[in-house]
Design a protein around this nucleic acid. Structure first.
Lengths: 249, 249
DNA sequence: GACAATTATGATATAAAAATGTTATATTAT
DNA sequence: ATAATATAACATTTTTATATCATAATTGTC
């Protein structure tokens, strides 16, 4: 079988979450219908998709999808941010990775150093299993389906007990006036506790988050040390950062 | 033969855990295809790698890949076990899912009931995000790369605090004499604590685990309530189960 | 250093396997 | 009942692996 074509097909289906055979045929005009069918059979046997008469659908579940969709958004920006963040990760330090897509991309890029990595993202923990040197610790608590993150009282208690050198915190929305915001109270509690405990706090602010505000503020500019972004900050952000000694990467 | 090249090839395969012949050819453009084949034959005869049509794979994979491989093994058996386990899950109860591939398959099959699900498997937690009703709680602690499971002091403390109605425990090895075993001390501590706390303890014993013994015993027959398996138990298991009032599903 | 013996490599032909296409037949939806 | 779609069976093409032989490089011996 042609792996590359099959992966393209799967990608297409995942993106659109459904696809007709005709669409796929049009997408790959140089192979026969039968081959498409066979490719789909192969993909189906891996459990990634399901065939039905006339087409196929992705088997990924609604909540996964939201996360996966966000995972595919602005990949380049996330890569840029990950590269910047790597410069802040020192061997033999203890770092915290907040749940979320930016930090999952960061997790994929972390080298095999002697680190203590604490995370609220199970997906991040799984990703880090590819490495041999870091000790990976998962925060306990309740899963938030939206951001695949852990929060709750147990998590807070645990964070209270550990030491964090550098914390990478996901930001859902921000403004120069209200600071850094997120969508739930539970997440807010986690993020603000971590920032209090960490020696260095790094805000992972993809560009699109900077024009958006979420209900809960978890940190103001004076609480943080670095802002990592994928493009450039607007003047008011820069000004506010400078005023509070926040370094922009 | 050229030892140095062969070692480079082996290194490359180990690092990527698989390699296509084409990749290797591109990597060593100054030798012929035939030579690559012969190198691979030599490496295969040492038992370090395995050839398959189109490429080679390493026998020792990074742990995350190892987990995925185990995930694909005996899928039918795991499905059978999952179906049996479902009959023990009651609405509005608190269940514990141990990390591991059998319970990940079980997780994929759990219906959208009002459950409290506690798990040591981040992959299981992610899978359960597809559901809307259960409250999913992840145990805190350190990741064991081999079974993608969480263990350690934090996890033990957390388990101590919660109530578990039915616990589904993964079994790595078992015998009628020594009972149920696993591979690390940390896992042993988790499993035995959970069994102590749970009202009902269910051992998930795929057939292939029953002819295998692992270093740490975490439970004897008298500690457990159910054994779920995908085929049939041998006479000595049945006898020992009956003696201790363990129900075999 | 010359020479044989061994080992490694490359080229080509051949065999095996896998992927694809074609056509015929079965299934399904309306 | 009919048209659309899916599957099965077989033929063909393409890809990949092996066997064989010739040649080159390396090693050991005198």
């Amino acid at each position: 079988m042609n792996r590359i074509r099959q992966e393209k097909i799967q990608d297409y289906i995942e993106r659109n979450s459904v696809a007709t055979i005709k669409e796929l045929q049009a997408l790959f005009p140089d192979v026969s219908l039968m081959t498409i069918h066979r490719d789909l059979d192969a993909l189906e046997s891996t459990g990634a998709i399901v065939k039905y008469r006339g087409g196929v659908k992705s088997l990924h579940h609604p909540d996964d999808i939201e996360f996966n969709i966000r995972m595919r958004e602005n990949i380049q920006g996330k890569e840029i941010m990950a590269q910047k963040a790597l410069s802040l990760i020192k061997n033999r330090s203890s770092i915290f990775l907040d749940a979320g897509t930016s930090n999952l991309v960061l997790g994929k890029n972390i080298p095999d150093l002697s680190l203590n990595i604490i995370t609220t993202g199970p997906a991040i923990a799984i990703e880090l299993c590819r490495l041999h040197n870091p000790i990976v610790t998962v925060c306990c608590g309740d899963m938030n389906r939206k951001n695949m993150g852990i929060s709750g009282k147990n998590a807070l208690e645990m964070i209270d007990k550990i030491n964090i050198d550098t914390a990478f915190i996901g930001v859902s929305g921000a403004s120069s006036k209200v600071g850094f915001t997120c969508g739930t109270e539970a997440d807010m509690l986690i993020k603000s506790s971590v920032i209090k405990k960490a020696r260095v706090s790094v805000m992972m602010c993809a560009q699109e988050k900077l024009t958006r505000l979420m209900p809960y503020t978890f940190a103001s500019f004076s609480d943080v040390d670095y802002i990592i972004t994928d493009y450039e900050l607007s003047a008011d952000f820069k000004e506010e950062a400078e005023k509070n000694g926040v370094i922009i990467l």
